[in-house]
Nucleic acid binder design. Structure first.
Length: 483
RNA sequence: CGGAAUGUAGCUCAGGUGGUAGAGCGCACGGUUCGGGACCGUGAGGUCGCAGGUUCGAGUCCUGUCAUUCCGACCA
């Protein structure tokens, strides 16, 4: 059996056999999560949480760079707040958990556990904003939110999840629109350059937009099973919440005016995307920029040879550390090399370096790439530079591979029948013309369960007619089965 | 929230027609090993998801409930 084909880690269902089971298997075997004893809730275990922390750090830096500050708003939101914005309450009511009793008393007003915080920010902004001099107000919070979903899936859709939600208020529509697009850009850049996941940027159709938004913008990614995942959204809220919560400011002309607000968020859902975009039958595959451990060194050899091998391995370990590489050395002698190989592959470490007696003689080390499985000898002299170059190669190659997969699984449909065929036989993204009528959009879903993912900013084609009704198309829309 | 399936050791699972709980892997200890999940020996580990019921007796039968998975309706 060829090495590449061998099933190295038992107990992981192959992707080709059952993608959903593969996903759950990997998450559990790699110790990213475990189920908690509450419906739809998981524990995010340290390895996964560390990934989230690294995402937080990157994003937070970008938020700060663009003038935002962090704050923390309450977990509980009075029921009356929701009723102020009609569309908002209708959108979220079905999934709100309520606190009705506390301290042994029935509460006078029920408190919702926040599903998102537009209303709470709105309430506070109304008090803090008086003058045009108070604008723009640019805040973000890192928080947990709860949405009582009917159907849950680890990371992608859990009852409680972690995210950041940015909430900004601006004097003008133009400024708020700029902010909306700026943050979408920050998300897209982060996901593509840091996570090596290519995205499609676009606008949500009215039926898919955030409850209470004027417009919702999104980045969409393609999972390995051909389903789409919304990885972040940015909302232009216009004056909807400003009017519901009386967020007004006195302008230079001494006129009282409503502000324009935005909100934007990215959640721990992104961890699921990392798994589903890059993972393979051996487990996780982490892009080097994200990976907490970029290189693992495994010294090999029986007791006699071991001392010299470990010494040489340690030299390399220290040299890599000095060069700023996140490197781990596993010199445990109670675990076999083969076991270690499988373990670090399962956990997605980008590069493995093996050093054994044979390498010592040749003054070299064996390198193994996690993304391609390639194995090759590298002279110890210059190994540090080679690692650095390889890390950026892997980062680029992983993105390119995912990008290629996205392109190969993106098609254009001229008719509803063709769209349905593509979705049913190939999955992936299918571009089609749309007249703008919600019924036509709905017809696609009824025909094949694919939903409109977005109206892309840069469509690869411009269909002239609506895929459902045949009238002139107003937009090109990406349809896909989605998570 | 509807339909289907599953729930026995940390993991994968076995336990006809009811009779008091097993294997492999993992774990602990000792020894031998080390280039793709090494081997030998000894040992620890179980309210059989939970709650009722039937029975002299329930992992096994009945009812309910909780959780997970898959398929639908709703969603970051």
């Amino acid at each position: 059996m060829a090495k590449q084909d061998k099933q190295f880690v038992k107990e992981i269902t192959p992707q080709s056999e059952d993608f959903s089971r593969w996903y759950i298997d990997v998450l559990q075997k790699a110790e990213w999560m475990d189920y908690a004893p509450v419906r739809g809730c998981i524990v995010i275990r340290p390895d996964a949480y560390e990934i989230w922390e690294r995402c937080q750090r990157e994003l937070d830096r970008e938020f700060k760079r663009t003038g935002h500050r962090n704050a923390y708003f309450p977990l509980f939101i009075p029921e009356s707040f929701f009723e102020k914005e009609k569309e908002h309450v209708e959108g979220f009511n079905p999934e709100l958990p309520w606190v009705t009793e506390a301290g042994g008393d029935i509460l006078e007003e029920r408190l919702a556990v926040r599903p998102t915080s537009e209303t709470m920010f709105g309430h506070m902004y109304a008090q803090w904003i008086q003058s045009y001099r108070d604008l723009p107000l640019l805040l973000n919070q890192w928080a947990n939110v709860v949405r009582w979903e009917k159907r849950t899936l680890p990371f992608l859709r859990t009852s409680e999840f972690l995210w950041q939600e940015g909430h900004t208020a601006h004097a003008t529509e133009e400024e708020a629109r700029e902010e909306t697009m700026r943050m979408l850009g920050i998300y897209a850049d982060f996901v593509e350059s840091f996570l090596a996941i290519p995205v499609i940027r676009g606008q949500k159709t009215p039926s898919e937009k955030f409850a209470g938004a004027v417009e919702t913008y999104t980045i969409e990614s393609l999972m390995k099973d051909g389903r789409a995942l919304q990885t972040a959204t940015s909302h232009y809220l216009g004056q909807n919440f400003a009017k519901s919560f009386e967020i007004q400011y006195l302008d230079r002309d001494n006129q009282l005016k409503y502000v324009y607000t935005t909100s934007w968020g990215m959640s721990t859902r992104i961890l699921g995307a990392i798994v589903m975009v890059h993972g393979d039958d051996r487990g996780l595959v982490l892009p080097p920029k994200l990976a907490p451990t970029q290189v693992v060194i495994v010294p090999i050899g029986p007791a006699k040879a071991r001392e010299a091998v470990v010494a040489k391995a340690r030299d390399l370990f220290e040299a890599l550390q000095r060069a700023g590489v996140r490197v781990h050395m596993d010199d445990r002698d109670d675990v076999s090399p083969g076991w270690k190989f499988n373990e670090y592959e399962l956990r997605g470490v980008p590069i493995r370096i093996e050093i054994g007696p044979r390498d010592l003689e040749a003054s070299q080390a064996m390198f193994a790439r996690r993304d391609t499985g390639e194995k090759f000898a590298v002279p110890l002299d210059g190994a540090v530079e080679r690692v650095q170059a390889l890390l950026s190669d892997i980062q680029r190659d992983m993105f390119d591979a995912a990008k290629r997969r996205l392109e190969e699984n993106s098609h254009v449909a001229e008719s509803l029948q063709q769209l349905v065929d593509l979705i049913q036989t190939k999955r992936g993204f299918v571009l089609a013309g749309w007249c703008g009528d919600e019924a036509c959009e709905r017809a696609v879903k009824d025909a094949c369960t694919a939903t409109s993912r977005c109206i892309p900013f840069h469509p690869p084609a411009h269909p002239e007619t609506c895929v459902t009704c045949g009238k002139p198309a107003k937009h090109a829309v990406w349809f896909a089965k989605s998570y």
